[in-house]
Simulated scan of single mutants.
Amino acid sequence: MQRESPSGERYFHLRWKRARRNKFPVSSYRLESGEKTDMEFPLTSGNLQGGDHDSDCAMVYFDLETTGLGNSAEICQIGAYYAEKDFSRYVCPKRDFDSGAAETTGFYKKDGILYLRGERVQTVPIFEAWLHFLEFLESASRSVVLVIHNRPFDSRFLLRDLLTFELIDNFRRLCIGMIDTLPLCREIFPERKQVGKRYKLQELVGDILGKEHASGSHNAVVDVRNLEKLLKQANVELEILKKHYLPLSKLEYSYFKRKKENFLKYKLPNLPRDITKKIIVADEISYEDLVRAYAEGRETGVKLLLPDEKKIRKPRVSKKQSAVEDITDSLTGLKISS
């Protein structure tokens, strides 16, 4: 029987405290070749021509299709490509597709059945889809770097689901980082911006590989195959790849910071954004810490909670009276007992 995962406020703070205890962004992965850290850039040869850069690392092209762009959107397809092998799993989402997403991707749902461009597709539960994806990564028999066009979008849903289903440790053993090809393409094709062309994958593929390749875009399997062809044709140099690589631990750290910012915005909507960001940088301060300090000492308690400016060169949270007042004002309307 699958163990129930903690959720909501308690879930977030458990993950954040664990991240702090493990002192992200440093983490290690034991591979067959020995012990490495995911802070290392794993690719070692000069370009993409001819396949993988190095026998110690597999570059897996990855893409998701979703019901929309917002945080509440759900995944409807997971796609990947590596060494002439495709991976694809369709998932029937619980929520309906946004009109824009349905028009762009061709996916829609009717009577609990998922359709793609008018044809019914075979679906699996989302948990099962992620298990199959992890098995696909494991089949590479070496550490994996995911190559993604617009990584912040896809990695947000990937990390959200893997954390929710408690599969993140399995993923950490397989994947050491990600490369974002959106800023990479902006760098290697600067002339597009000069003539007003965009860097969407479908448009890049149509202009560089030919219109016939772009016809099936917004199907995750087609997109990952096209992305691999695009990078091979561009003959991308190692140093450019390195600039757009992030280790998994940094991605997780950024994800937790964003979750904490959103959580504080939800709990304290009147708290100014600059104060919120400074609280996030001082990542030992949680919402519970703020509430406890306010309950015990009101404005004085909040002031004492913030780091001592005299002990650090660049204060992570300003102790100016205005900042303290902003935090205190945000907490004033809450039902807090001292």
Rank of each mutant, 00 (worst) to 15 (best):
S5H: 06
P6N: 12
L14K: 15
R15V: 07
R20K: 08
S28D: 03
R30W: 10
E35R: 15
T37C: 12
L43W: 03
G50N: 05
G51L: 00
A58W: 05
Y61C: 03
D63C: 01
E65G: 05
C76L: 08
C76D: 04
I78E: 01
R89A: 00
F97A: 03
F97M: 06
S99H: 13
A102P: 07
A102T: 12
K109A: 02
G112Y: 09
G118N: 11
T123L: 10
V124I: 08
P125R: 09
F127M: 10
F127R: 06
W130V: 02
W130G: 05
L131D: 09
E135V: 13
L137F: 09
E138P: 04
V147Q: 08
I148H: 03
R151D: 11
P152R: 15
P152H: 14
D154K: 11
R160W: 06
T164W: 01
E166W: 12
F171L: 05
I176W: 13
G177I: 01
R186L: 01
F189P: 08
F189Y: 12
V195I: 15
G196Q: 11
R198I: 15
Y199G: 11
L204Y: 11
H213A: 07
H213L: 10
A214P: 10
G216C: 13
H218M: 10
H218T: 02
D223V: 12
R225G: 04
L230A: 01
V236R: 00
E237T: 11
E237H: 14
L238M: 13
E239H: 11
I240R: 12
L241P: 00
K242W: 14
K243Q: 11
H244Y: 14
L246N: 15
K250W: 07
K259P: 02
K260Y: 04
K267E: 06
L268H: 01
I275V: 06
K277V: 08
I279V: 05
S286R: 03
E296L: 13
G297Y: 02
R298L: 02
E299D: 08
P307T: 01
S318A: 03
K319A: 07
K319Y: 02
K320A: 12
E325N: 12
I327N: 11
L334I: 15
S338Q: 15
